[in-house]
Every structure is written in C-alpha cells, then in structure tokens.
C-alpha cells in the first residue's frame, strides 16, 4: 500500500516541474527519487518499515 502521505504534484510554492513528482505531505517537500520508491512500496521497500518520516509521524499521532 502506498504511503498515505504521498502526493504527486507539479508545483509547490515557487517550485515547479514538467512532470508531477513525489511529494511528502508530512514534511511539505518534494522527496528524493530513491525515497519515492519507499513511498510507493516498490520492490521490497515498505514505507512503514523504511521511512523515518512516516514512522516518526505515526509515533507522534499515537
């Protein structure tokens, strides 16, 4: 399951891209391409296990 905090956006503030890019709504930033694979749970990657942003956010919500 894709990270619930993942969005795809072309713009954020004064930043814009030709293609929509992975955007983390927790930190309000575009994410690195390698991190986007974690957000999307590609391969054996799992956002709940491998993303410190997701994990930290979940712990903060509890």
């Amino acid at each position: 399951m894709v990270c619930p905090h993942l969005a795809y956006r072309k713009t954020n503030g004064d930043r814009s891209f030709a293609e929509a890019r992975a955007f983390c709504t927790v930190v309000d930033e575009f994410v690195q391409p390698m991190r986007a694979d974690i957000c999307n749970d590609r391969f054996a990657l799992d956002h709940a296990a491998h993303c410190e942003i997701y994990r930290g956010h979940e712990e903060g919500e509890e």
Binding site: R21, F30, Q32, P33, M34
Partner: peptide, 8 residues
C-alpha cells in the same frame, strides 16, 4: 544518479 534529482 538515482538518489536525488531536480528537487535538489
């Protein structure tokens, strides 16, 4: 590379 991209 493959780690960072145009966001950096």
């Amino acid at each position: 590379g493959g780690v960072h991209g145009k966001e950096a």
